[in-house]
Nucleic acid binder design. Structure first.
Length: 437
RNA sequence: GCCCCGGUGGUCUAGCGGUCUAUGAUCCCGGCCUGUCGAGCCGGGUGCUCGGGUUCGAAUCCCGACCGGGGCGCCA
């Protein structure tokens, strides 16, 4: 019985003389005249199949004609050989072409030339045949598993809220509109309102990993129109300190797990992410302004911190050993209506951003759970509470204090691995101009 | 949306008014070669994003469109 899914990793010199059938993509054909070497790639490496002309000329001719990147199954015998990288080679007796590749390839896979990002994403399936590209998504998978596991162990339930909505959720960010049986519907920009509603139910510790959509025409290395948001929301908190502790622990754990479970990937990617010391630095907004002013940047009180300021702060914190830090107590005026203001300083708020290497990973805070205050906040922002009745209702019948965050998985993977563009951390990124593939 | 830079064979590049029937690499095709592993050697193949304009002459200069890269704004 032949299994096509057999890994070359399960074969070794000790299998001397044993028959084997191994599948894979033809990465290279080296025809030396009387002998040919096929470099066959599988999911986590390559092995060599060797074809000798003497004894089986038709097989040799067929092997020499193989088109790179074709899918083949090679049947032969295992031959130990110290000259070969794995310590053994497969002496081919037959080669079945299961799927021939066209030539030339629209994107080099094993060539000695590079390709531009646009060409790569146009041919992403070929791009992903390169080990260094796939390594990113193995790391991403470890990150997701680690975050899930860490929160689940603390009683967080994984939930799924609707991605089709009848109205704009938070206001502000632009929504994608779509047709919905004669009505208008919108792609969800955030699970914010729904996860808060859940806080009133007893499903009061939730997490969600899901796409979020933003119709903002941003052209940067850290924006896409569809991204993966890791949301958490927890009730019965004393203060946003409770939120900090859960989030920082989960993120630190994710980095630890990547370091221990994705060593080969980190090596391929030349990445060496440091595990942060906990607790992370909490940098209040007012102190952040001081740092900026000390570095010669002019900022007015209660202004939002712009991209340059964010980078300056990131560099300053980095010098102090805080690649990751919380930027806390933003002015209430630049935060959404659902954020709780500080009782002793209503112009400030219980809100935060989680910054990593000068980029925003997450934002969150303690939510306003008092119905009357919430309605007043809406009005103060010029929003009609009537449009939020489905949400506000949950605050009229018993809503515990709660808080949470929204965390960008793609950005986190980008920064974790020092990738130059967030698109590198997304299989099929969506931006202003790219909708295919 | 704004600012800067750019679009040359399948891919990545050099060229930036005539010397370009366009450079090099990679790739593809053919040939030689029995131990390659960035295989090597020989021969061949494919190209100036599109539309206007300037000029005796445009890959090269100008304008526009489209597309791409980066920065800003906005945010995850």
């Amino acid at each position: 019985m032949v299994s096509l899914s057999r890994s070359f990793r399960d074969v070794g010199p000790s299998d001397h003389g044993k028959p084997a059938t191994l599948g894979g993509w033809v990465e290279d054909v080296r025809n030396l005249g009387g002998i040919a070497f096929l470099i066959i790639r599988q999911r986590d490496g390559t092995f060599q199949a060797t074809v000798k002309k003497k004894g089986n000329e038709p097989l040799f001719e067929a092997a020499a004609k193989l088109v790179r990147e074709s899918v083949v199954a090679v049947h032969g015998t295992v031959q130990p050989n110290a000259q070969v990288r794995n310590g053994w080679e497969l002496l081919a007796a037959s080669i079945a072409v299961l799927s021939a590749a066209d030539a030339p390839l629209p994107l080099p896979v094993a060539d000695k030339v590079g390709a531009e990002m646009d060409t790569r994403f146009d041919n992403r399936f070929l791009d992903l045949r390169k080990p260094e590209r796939r390594a990113i998504f193995r790391v991403r998978s470890v990150v997701l598993a680690a975050l899930r596991e860490r929160l689940a162990s603390q009683g967080f339930l994984e939930v799924h809220t609707p991605k089709l909505a009848g109205a704009g959720a938070e206001g502000g960010a632009t929504l994608f509109e779509t047709a919905y049986f004669g009505r208008k519907a919108y792609l969800s920009q955030s699970p914010q309102l729904y996860k808060q509603i859940l806080m009133s139910t007893g499903l009061d510790r939730v997490m969600e990993f899901a796409p979020a959509f933003r119709a903002e025409p941003s052209d940067t290395v850290r924006h896409v129109t569809e991204f993966t948001s890791f949301d958490g929301e927890m009730a019965w908190i004393e203060s946003q300190e409770d939120v900090f502790r859960v989030l920082e622990d989960a993120v630190a754990h994710a980095i630890e797990r990547v370091r221990s479970e994705a060593k080969p990937e980190l090596e391929i990617l030349h990445a060496d992410p440091a595990v942060p010391q906990l607790p992370l630095r909490r940098l209040p907004y007012d102190e952040a302004l001081e740092i900026l002013r000390n570095r010669g940047k002019h900022v007015r009180d209660r202004d939002d911190i712009d991209t340059e300021g964010e980078k300056v702060l990131g560099a300053a914190m980095g010098q102090e050993g805080h690649a990751l830090y919380f930027l806390t107590e933003y002015p209430a005026a630049i935060k959404p209506f659902y954020i709780m203001a500080k009782p002793d300083d209503p112009e400030a708020s219980f809100s935060f951003d989680l910054e990593y290497k000068g980029d925003e990973m997450a934002s969150g805070g303690q939510r306003e759970h008092r119905y009357d205050v919430l309605v007043a906040n809406l009005k103060a922002k010029g929003i009609d509470p009537a449009g939020f009745e489905f949400y506000l209702k949950a605050f009229r019948y018993g809503m515990p204090p709660h808080g949470g965050w929204g965390f960008g998985i793609d950005r986190f993977v980008q920064k974790l691995l020092d990738l130059p563009n967030v698109r590198e951390a997304i299989l099929f990124p969506r931006d202003r101009t790219r909708l295919v593939p």
